[in-house]
Design a protein around this nucleic acid. Structure first.
Length: 553
RNA sequence: GCGCCUGUAGCUCAGUUGGAUAGAGCAACGGACUUCUAAUCCGUAGGUCAGAGGUUCGAAUCCUCUCAGGCGUGCCA
């Protein structure tokens, strides 16, 4: 609907330009918004005010010219008002709104999709936790945000791929191996000194126990490095399996798990280093190899290879992003914890150094999650091994609630996860509030079908719906495609969560004031179509968030 | 010290990229079930948009400074 008004307005402005009434303008200066107040119409434009200075005419004069031309133009506009300093307020004919019911009926689960991203290949990389321990609650937020963003981008017509980068090379992997081996020796009664940087969680002991069942005492007789390797391989494989299974129960899926080790196997790191050298972008100093990131806006140069000969984390990461670029993505989105924000300038520098436009790379930073139980913060620390895992959260509050809670804040806002609220099955919990709306509709439709009545597009009289709460409800479902497109364009998945709340509110309000099944047969038929459409949109939006739409509660 | 994020009702947060009288939910108070699911709805009250300047027709939104909280500032990952 918004787009229809927009194109009418563009047409009008073009005519005014041709007539010499106003000077030429840039396309993106035309902006349609929904006014803060229903009294100001369905849509509004500030074009008269933004043009006033350049046209050297009072805004209200320009607004009036637009009004006269546009009122003659379309059959969807009821009337146009000019308000305040020069706002143009558009009032849509009520019956026109009801056409969205036909759209929803025709498109079903495709309602809300668009071609915004047609022809664009996007990759979203998220979670990417090291296989050194189970996913914790912070990973959960990244997983929920990333997975939902992927679904939104797909709905907006992007060719999108979800990827998980496995850091299975390097020091922390050895650490893992050492940690497990220590616990293993402990099992056989050896006195051990646990490594300083070791992983202290209980799961390490479980892994050691599992190893002892497979190998018996054999590893005690192996030489140290061989034993560590066996422990490392076994542990990382087991943990990765567990991570995958957790993601699966969280309804999060990936198109590809990309292993860091393949970068070495395919020599991609060396090729990248060679490229940097050839381009004059790297140099040796102090026995280390440096990358001139400062040339691309970073505050100082960064080390690629340390003076002990080993590579920094940054080096394979550049090679990894080179690989991504080579795969032909027009846009690369990395979802990171906000504590990695200092890493953004150097990654952007790398992207630019690799010959790509730095704007094709986006880092979405996810702020911290803290847990609250009975009003008190729950202490967490990865190092000491005291952390709440994603699995524990899912077991406690359920997958749907967890996903919604992770998405009910803007990404760059810290999130307080209230476990007591999450478990409450009442109106305070937004998830139940939304799902309840869907279940209520299902219940009405079930009652209707018992009486042999169904939503029937042919016989329903939409004019009956062009008033009151019926019309308000229709307007909310009509904005859904704009919401999805907006989320995709601005990479802000949380807006879906807020939209769902608005839609559920509009439905509950409607429900309390009106009956669907009544003695009035014509109204009953019309409203069956209406609530079927609402049900469809609720289901579509919930699906974008990966949340169930229950038939009954 | 420097950089990034945040600061909006008692609490938790939105705010359509600079628009009109700043909005929800919870908590508080008062109402609505012979009615398709009361896990619901309606009403009342609640504000120096952290503070001070600036930019302009117009600022919660943009710029500068100050204050407060979080994070970063490794040849860690």
């Amino acid at each position: 609907m918004k787009n229809r008004i927009l194109s009418l307005l563009k047409q009008t402005m073009d005519e005014l330009v041709q007539e010499g009434f106003v000077p030429g303008y840039e396309l993106n200066t035309i902006n349609i918004t929904t006014p803060p107040n229903k009294d100001f119409g369905d849509f509004a434009s500030n074009i008269a005010m933004t043009m006033a200075a350049r046209a050297k005419k009072p805004p209200r004069d320009i607004a009036n010219a637009v009004k006269v031309k546009m009122e003659a133009l379309g059959d969807i506009i009821d009337r146009i008002d000019i308000a305040g300093p020069g706002f143009i307020n558009f009032y849509i004919k009520p019956v026109v709104w009801t056409s969205v019911l036909n759209e929803i009926h025709d498109q079903k689960e495709l309602y809300g999709t668009s071609s915004l991203g047609a022809g664009k290949k996007v990759q979203v990389e998220f979670v990417s936790a090291n296989p050194t321990g189970p996913l914790h609650i912070g990973h959960g937020r990244g997983a929920a945000v990333g997975d939902t963003l992927v679904r939104i981008l797909a709905a907006a017509g992007f060719d999108v791929e979800a990827e998980y980068y496995i850091n299975d090379v390097g020091n922390q992997m050895n650490n893992l191996g050492l940690s497990v081996l220590s616990r293993y020796r402990e099992l056989f009664g050896e006195k051990i000194t646990f490594p300083d940087q070791g992983y202290k969680g209980e799961y390490i002991k479980d892994l050691a126990t599992a190893l002892s069942k497979i190998h018996g005492e054999d590893l005690l007789r192996q030489n140290q490095s061989k034993a560590v390797e066996i422990c490392r391989e076994f542990a990382s494989r087991s943990i990765l399996e567990e991570i995958k299974s957790d993601l699966d129960t969280f309804n999060v899926s990936f198109d590809r798990f990309f292993s860091e080790s393949t970068l070495y196997e395919n020599n991609e790191v060396d090729i990248m280093l060679e490229y940097m050298k050839d381009q004059g972008l790297s140099y040796e100093d102090d026995g280390a190899l440096w990358f001139r990131t400062s040339r691309f806006g970073d505050e100082k140069d960064r080390v690629l290879r340390k003076n002990d000969g080993t590579l920094t984390y940054f080096a394979p990461d550049i090679a990894y992003h080179k690989d991504k670029l080579a795969r032909g993505f027009t846009q690369i989105i990395d979802i990171w914890g906000a504590d990695h924000h200092g890493y953004v300038p150097r990654m952007k520098a790398a992207i630019e150094a690799l010959g790509a436009d730095k704007d094709c790379f986006n880092a979405l930073l996810i702020q911290l999650v803290s847990l609250v139980r009975q009003g008190k913060p729950v202490q967490m620390s990865t190092r000491s091994g005291e952390f709440i895992t994603l699995k524990e959260i899912i077991d406690e509050v359920g997958k749907d609630v967890a996903r919604y809670f992770f998405l009910m804040r803007r990404c760059d806002s810290q999130l307080v996860f209230d476990l007591d609220l999450a478990k409450k099955k009442s109106d305070e919990n937004p998830v139940y509030y939304i799902q309840y709306a869907h279940a209520r509709i299902c219940s009405i439709l079930a009652n209707a079908s018992e009486q042999g009545m169904y939503a029937d597009m042919e016989t329903a009289d939409f004019e009956l719906l062009a008033t009151g709460e019926d019309l308000e409800l229709i307007k909310v479902i009509a904005t859904y495609p704009d919401v999805v497109a907006g989320c995709a364009a601005d990479l802000e998945p949380h807006r879906i969560a807020f939209y769902l709340l608005d839609l559920a509110t509009a439905f509950h309000r409607f429900y309390n004031k009106n009956r669907v099944l009544s003695d009035d047969g014509r109204m009953t038929k019309a409203r069956l179509v209406l609530i079927s459409a609402v049900k469809q949109v609720l289901a579509n939006a919930l699906a974008l968030m990966g949340i169930e739409a229950p038939q009954s509660m």
